[in-house]
Design a binder for these strands. Structure first.
Lengths: 256, 256
DNA sequence: CGCTTGCAACTGGCCTGACCAGTAAGCTCA
DNA sequence: TGAGCTTACTGGTCAGGCCAGTTGCAAGCG
């Protein structure tokens, strides 16, 4: 091989539809296009981009599948710019779980990490309103124990949601949302039909109260520890014995 | 309003291209289509799905943008099924950072959480080979200090990669990858031109060694603590003073 | 005068058919 | 046997068209 000239990797030609996607994505990222605003009609876009309608449509379908815009047949205002949503992230995360055979143990480990960290941060950053919001969700949980698993689960989710918000970290919030959804979609029916579900719910409520008290006391490490332990108690039964190592590591090791 | 009959919400009709996407996605999820295999040609798919070519193409463009398949013009074998990649997740996560204005502080907090947890788990689960792989990357880092920031950063990334793998949790691995990429893409040039970059690199290397020793000693909490502190020292300078609270919470609170 | 109704002018969803450029396998010919 | 060309495909893109759905407005109704 001769030295001297350095060659760059050649890249395949960029498809036309891709450039259209890029332009619109950039416009949204720049803020030129805000949620709720409308894109010109397809035929108008054809004129502006100088491409054919199928090409423009390919671009719109990609944007649509990414959750950036939505087209409705007959709408004279044109495609709508959608507000940001974590739907795409959720889809990708779910894909990861399906194709990359992520195990239940990994999923729950991750949830313990996220939820523990959310509690830790919430303990330091929570406002008074957030504290009372947490209290309200606990009250709803208490009432829901008799209403059945469905209701209880909804209130449970709401509590964790408030905690995640109080952590002031939207990455934690979104990832937690996604992982929680993935876990529930895998075993919610098992939980619903657990023989001793009332006892489980009661215990879970108790744990949640402890977490809340730790957050109120601004004791982050305790809040984190209790959160993780709660999740462990609640879910460990659904993880094979030989995969429980990581879960135990998360419960034990942070204790002092 | 009369009571009696209850009506369900009507859902918008599912677009044709969407159903094609679903079918192909399912086939991949089921394992009927494995990476490396080929899809029939567009014209063949047109026949099989009974849809027109533009419609089939819309579906293929969506799959392509999601990283599931790749089409190459002229390839007589048809579109290729791609192996799973976290590219889609990365894209979504990047979108989250861009559109949902995630701050540098949030990004680094999240990185501290992920990396700390990875170290914690790695301390318990690491194999001997992984330990020596970590050692090798540290050796490369040491050599790279003089070669400049570029090389050093690459070795640095490799170390964290090995640790993440040793945590045996692909969710941590992927999220860490993504967040690391996002952070670096935001400030890698600043790091590269830091006035005292050599000193910084030397200190970072020292911290990494400490992490490795904690992992070797199977002391998870220590490994996690040191990981977080290392990241804090390395990146805190790029976070505004008034946003450092969460970072400090992650560094301090877990110490005992 | 206010409300409903029906219509018309758009919209996007989908299709047909066509042309061009790129690829690779097979064939030809030295 | 091997190098080069040909050919039969591939995907990329376009033009034009039909249908169904949405909306706004104007005409018609009470």
């Amino acid at each position: 091989m001769s030295d001297g000239a350095q060659f760059r990797q050649v890249s395949p030609p960029v498809r036309l539809y891709q450039r259209i996607v890029e332009q619109i994505e950039e416009a949204i990222a720049r803020g030129d296009l805000k949620p709720g605003q409308r894109l010109p009609s397809e035929r108008e876009l054809v004129a502006q981009f100088g491409a054919s309608r199928p090409t423009v449509r390919e671009a719109l379908r990609v944007l649509e599948s990414n959750g950036l815009v939505r087209s409705r047949q007959g709408d004279p205002n044109g495609p709508e710019i959608l507000p940001f949503s974590s739907a795409g992230l959720t889809k990708e995360m779910t894909r990861l779980v399906q194709f990359d055979n992520v195990s239940m143990a990994e999923l729950i480990s991750f949830r313990m990490i996220l939820d523990g960290s959310a509690s830790l941060l919430a303990a330091r950053l929570r406002s008074e309103e957030e504290l009372s919001a947490m209290e309200r969700t606990l009250a709803v949980m208490a009432d829901a124990i008799e209403a059945g698993y469905e209701e209880f689960s909804k209130a449970d989710v709401a509590f964790h949601e408030v905690v995640a918000q109080a952590s002031r970290n939207s990455l934690i919030e979104v990832c937690n949302l996604v992982v929680r959804g993935a876990v529930l979609s895998l075993i919610s029916d098992k939980l619903a039909h657990a023989p001793n579900s009332t006892a489980l719910m009661r215990e879970s409520l108790h744990h949640h109260r402890e977490v809340l008290e730790a957050i109120r006391a601004q004791d982050g490490p305790a809040a984190a520890r209790i959160s993780r332990r709660d999740l462990y108690d609640y879910y460990a039964g659904y993880v094979p014995e030989n995969e429980q190592g990581p879960l135990l590591a998360l419960v034990d090791d942070e204790e002092t």
